[in-house]
Amino acid sequence: MGDVDFIKNVLVAMPYAAKLGVTAQLDDAGRLFCSMPFHENHIGNAQLPALHGGSLASFLEITAILQLAREQAAVQQVDSIEAGRAAIPLPVNVTVQYLRSARALACHAEARVLKVGRRTSTVFCQLWQDDEAKPVTSMTGVFIQPKS
């Protein structure tokens, strides 16, 4: 199963990602970027308006899970849709920093797996809007693999 198919399958297995409209793209170098379009439903403060901290944290967690599942799959040679679904990592904890107010714009994120361990894995993830050099939110998450 190719990388693109695998990512698609993991996204499909996560209905909440579809609810938020999260999509994933691979660039020529094989880097995974996720996007979440602006939608009224993602707003936390309608007067500003600013996106809800929960929308941002959810998007970051989805991005981290996709990147980690992808790297785990490369190690464990996941070769079917079912195995891909079973490979969705479980979060142990996430720590989220809100660096700037998130405006009524699309969000983009990229995750970096800091360590893939046999027991736990640690992923760092950053979110930006119109300027990649100005991160809006960042997250560090610890995940475990589900028991197979």
Binding site: A13, M14, E61
Partner: peptide, 27 residues
């Protein structure tokens, strides 16, 4: 709700839903 699920195999809510709930409740 099924649209809030994090893994269609287990029907468990996505961690992000829990985080969003905690963020809004604490806010």
């Amino acid at each position: 709700h099924e649209s809030l699920v994090g893994n269609a195999e287990t029907d468990v809510l996505h961690g992000g839903v829990v985080t969003a709930m905690i963020d809004e409740t604490a806010g």
